[in-house]
Design a protein around this nucleic acid. Structure first.
Length: 931
DNA sequence: CCTGTCACG
DNA sequence: GACGTACGTGACAGGG
């Protein structure tokens, strides 16, 4: 039947269906092999319900499901930031996309997509064609971007709410009728799609303006007539941006289609195609329902050997190290590959010659496909002991070729449809990356545990195995020895290596089976998938990039520091009256309090005198020696921890320093940096700051640093909902001065540095869960006075106390607290008694603030790579609220504007903060200049 | 291996 | 009433 008058075309927004299905359902997996299948299941259910609901008299005559294809469309060419803050597609959704296409076809519904265009454009084009042919159109979607198409025989249907949207419905949503919707969208912008629009104008104001002037063009031409000065200025200044926004939101009604509406005629599903597909997906209930509906026979879906939930718990299957296989040839490996392909997942673990993933060499690989079924593939074991002068470099017998093994494994490790499961996958991914293998997609049991158990315990394999499997892993110590006689893993005899290595993969797989369903129950699936797992590839690239550190600069500084220390040491010995080890707090304490007889010595729990900086600073008023020791300590610290130690971390081949970030180290969601720690490079003192001059850009490049301004205080203002603070941030005020002004009734113009300093200390104190004692010590004022400050602060900002009380009682009830993004931090001691309770309470108050800031910068980092794609720029370091980049000199400004946009918008669209997020930027030849 | 100290946010 | 306190980290040196 040719499409025309009396015909009715249904256009289903396929991508919307997929995402709704994905988020509505727990992460279901196909029972027989663990293939993620939840989105496909939901999608099929939705399609089936659609088919059932549309069988009646007003059934459509034509129908198609329209999908997006690829992520690059003509809109990206118009505006490179279009949809730039979209999160990457979840790893377990990607392999399901092609299956939803197959599902659509199995239901015998036309399935259409077009590269370079969004589904919305195809829908617009088809709607126009149908309208012109005199037929009716129903668009099954709730996407507001499609509302511009409504009217004249076209309506929308929100399938979930079963609500029809006509011209009046659009008016309700946008305040204008469909023909003016793009005008409103162009002004209001869209944070989800990253359409800029006119800053400060939302849908309400936009509709008001459009209704007043009639159209966007008219409005822009007559912008001078607008009364509100700020609004007028915005519209005049941002005209181009607004016009571009309109081009972004305006759907293309003339996309080049390679089919016609006539090709979309409704056809009944063919049970011979549909039933086998549903059976293959192992949808038991749906298969039966569909069979009933079409009077077909439901195929029998075999119950596979129960694996996860119904079977014996992975913890109950005994560990039998002697049954692990040793793979010594391609023939040995083949059946394992078959198993992996059949199941679609595998636990992987690498054994290497060391703990540093930038220098350690791959020694062997273990795989596990099912509890107890694991193998080890030795690849670079050596024959003979390390001290065997003759045999030490010989390769051990009975190993398959190194390159041969990798050639076989590479396609598996890179296969989009095979999930690679690891414990601390970043380590293994980096080892493989050095061998030119990009491991993806992945799951990581360490990160799963972190998402569920942060604050409860560590997330190393030994702890997890003991706690959740009741099994103590074979310790590595006896294999490697310790101290001087320690050997590397390549010297471990293969037979012993098999038991140890294969067990690690076995444990990992069991933990995965245990954790996978628990993630959802603990409601942290999103945290794991959006904030933890995506960090692995991002950090892998940053760590591998490293930062260039100039050895000569450090070496010169070390020399200068050594001289200065020797000089100070001499003076100190002179003042003390004898020689002693200045670096020994114990000896120093005895000199100060016993020999020199200074007053006020306090002994710690070990019986030694305390000689911390605060103590020495107090003593400095009585004698010259303590001040000298403070100077000596500062320089000693700089030399030993920085100028000396950093040199040893310069990689021999790259000439750069490659830190290692732990994703699951800090309970709050912050990263931690180790080997070396590049998150505590000095900056507060002038001398220390100069160490940053040794962190340099390559010739022709420059370092760019972007950091969040006062992000924790902004988050506090938002979470605790403090109007005065929010207002101060919106006005761009100096927040500490504003606090001081509010607290001490000092006008901003009369603010003194000292009053501001006190307010600053209070602001930080609040973030830390303030106590009179702590504030008093920090400000060196009497406790009574500190208490007065705090009382006053609470009086002026009463919401803060409410936030603190609410947080504490939430923690007491649930034993955890949450960030704005749903990250949970457990507070197991919150109901303890004694000083521990105080600790736990302050930590509970701090965690949502520190953790939310950590979540925000993680989101920025995850989006960053896409946003700066094409620029000659690399993200190198993260320091909690700062990101450091290296970029070709000419592209620095471009990088700053793109990176800033990502960072400032990183909370959105999940969270819309009531305060602006501001990012400061700097650039220079070295880190000191850039910051 | 633990403790004290001090570098950072 | 006493206790011990700002939150989160990592590295180094000394000392048992």
């Amino acid at each position: 039947m040719a499409f025309g008058k009396g015909c009715h075309l249904h256009l289903i927004d396929g991508s919307a269906f997929i995402f709704r299905a994905y988020h509505a359902l727990p992460p279901l997996t196909r029972k027989s092999d663990g293939l993620p299948i939840g989105a496909v299941a939901g999608f099929c259910n939705m399609i089936f319900r659609y088919v059932e609901d549309n069988a009646g008299p007003d059934a459509p005559t034509h129908v198609a499901v329209i999908f997006d294809k690829g992520s690059h469309t003509f809109r990206n060419d118009l505006y490179d930031q279009y949809k730039a803050n979209r999160d990457a597609m979840p790893e377990d959704l990607r392999p399901q996309i092609p299956l939803t296409r197959r599902a659509t076809e199995a239901f015998n519904i036309a399935c259409k997509e077009l590269a370079g265009y969004e589904a919305d454009d195809m829908i617009a084009t088809l709607a126009r064609q149908a309208r012109e042919a005199g037929g009716n159109v129903t668009i099954i979607s709730s996407d507001k971007d499609l509302m511009q198409l409504v009217g004249d025989g076209v309506e929308m249907l929100d399938a979930m709410k079963n609500r029809r949207i006509d011209r009046e419905g659009v008016f309700e949503k946008f305040g204008v009728y469909p023909e003016r919707v793009v005008d409103v969208q162009a002004l209001a912008g869209d944070s989800v799609d990253n359409v800029p629009g006119a800053p400060g104008i939302g849908i309400k104001t936009a509709a008001l303006l459009i209704n007043e002037f009639g159209s966007l063009e008219e409005l822009l031409d007559r912008a001078e007539e607008i009364k509100q000065p700020k609004r007028r200025q915005t519209l005049i200044e941002k005209r181009e941006q607004i016009e571009m926004s309109k081009r972004l939101v305006l759907l293309d009604e003339n996309t080049p289609l390679d089919f016609t509406i006539d090709d979309l005629e409704v056809q009944d599903p063919d049970p011979d195609v549909l039933m086998p597909f549903l059976a293959e997906m192992e949808f038991r209930t749906l298969t039966k329902r569909v069979a009933d509906r079409f009077g077909a026979e439901a195929p029998v879906i075999e119950e596979p050997k129960p694996v996860v939930e119904d079977g014996p718990s992975p913890a109950d299957i005994p560990f039998e190290p002697e049954t692990y296989a040793c793979v010594r040839s391609a023939d040995d490996l083949a059946p394992w590959i078959d198993q992996i392909l059949e199941r679609g997942y595998v636990a992987v673990d690498t054994e290497t010659t060391g703990l540093n993933d930038m220098t350690a060499e791959l020694v062997g690989i273990s795989l596990c496909v099912e509890p107890g079924q694991a193998c080890y593939i030795p690849l670079a074991h050596r024959a003979g002991a390390a001290d065997d002068l003759f045999g030490d470099d010989a390769r051990a017998e009975g190993q398959m070729g190194f390159d041969q093994a990798l050639e076989i494994l590479k396609p598996i490790l890179e296969d989009e449809a095979i999930l690679k499961i690891g414990q601390n996958m970043k380590y293994d991914a980096k080892i493989f990356a050095r061998l030119n293998i990009d491991v993806a997609p992945i799951d990581d049991t360490m990160l799963m545990s972190y998402a569920m158990h942060a604050g409860l315990h560590g997330h190393g394999m030994d702890i997890l195995s003991e706690r959740y499997l009741g099994h103590t892993p074979i310790p590595i110590k006896p294999l490697l020895g310790s101290g001087k006689s320690a050997i590397t893993f390549d010297r471990v005899p293969i037979d012993e290596a098999v038991r140890y290595a294969a067990e690690d993969a076995d444990i990992t797989l069991r933990l995965w089976q245990l954790f996978k369903p628990q993630l959802h129950r603990a409601q942290v699936t999103r945290v794991y998938e959006r904030l933890e797992r995506p960090m692995v590839p991002v950090l892998t690239r940053m760590e591998r990039a490293g930062v260039k550190v100039d050895r000569d600069t450090l070496s010169r500084m070390s020399g200068a520091f050594a001289q200065k220390m020797a000089q100070l040491e001499e003076e100190i010995h002179e003042l003390a009256g004898r020689k002693f080890n200045v670096g020994s707090p114990k000896q120093l304490g005895e000199i100060l309090f016993d020999e020199m007889g200074l007053e006020g010595g306090k002994r710690g729990k070990t019986g030694a005198y305390a000689t911390g900086a605060d103590v020495l600073e107090d003593l400095a008023t009585l004698h010259d020696l303590p001040g000298r020791v403070l100077d000596w300590r500062q320089i000693s610290k700089l030399k030993s921890t920085y100028t000396d130690a950093l040199q040893t971390h310069i990689h021999p081949e790259t000439g750069r320093v490659h830190t290692c970030y732990s994703i699951a180290g800090a309970s709050t969601g912050r990263l931690a940096s180790t080997d070396p720690n590049l998150q505590n490079i000095p900056i507060r003192t002038e001398e220390g700051r100069r160490i940053r001059e040794a962190f340099v850009a390559e010739p022709g490049k420059t370092l760019v640093s972007l950091d969040y301004s006062q992000i924790e205080l902004r988050i506090l203002a938002h979470i605790a909902d403090i109007d005065a603070l929010k207002e101060a941030f919106r006005e761009g005020q100096d927040i500490h001065a504003a606090t001081a002004s509010e607290m001490f009734n000092v006008p901003l113009e009369e603010m003194t540095p000292d009053i501001r300093r006190q307010a600053k200390a209070i602001n930080f104190g609040v973030i830390y869960g303030i106590s009179a004692f702590g504030l008093a010590r920090n400000l060196r004022i009497p406790r009574e006075e500190a208490k007065g400050f705090i009382d006053r602060y609470f009086e002026r900002f009463p919401g803060i106390r409410d936030y603190m009380d609410a947080t504490k009682s939430f923690a007491k009830e649930h034993d955890y607290v949450e960030t704005l993004f749903g990250r949970r931090i457990h507070t197991p001691e919150i109901n303890a008694r004694g000083p521990r309770a105080g600790f736990a309470q302050r930590a509970a108050i701090n965690a949502p603030i520190q953790g939310t800031a950590a979540d925000i910068i993680r989101r920025a980092m995850i989006r960053m790579e896409r946003a700066i794609e094409g620029l000659p720029a690399t993200m190198l370091l993260q320091v909690h609220d700062e990101l450091l980049f290296e970029v070709d000199e000419g592209a620095a400004e471009d990088l700053i504007s793109r990176a800033r946009e990502v960072m400032e918008g990183a909370a959105e669209p999940v969270v819309k903060l009531d305060v602006p997020i501001i990012v400061d930027a700097g650039q220079g030849a070295n880190w000191a200049e850039a910051h």
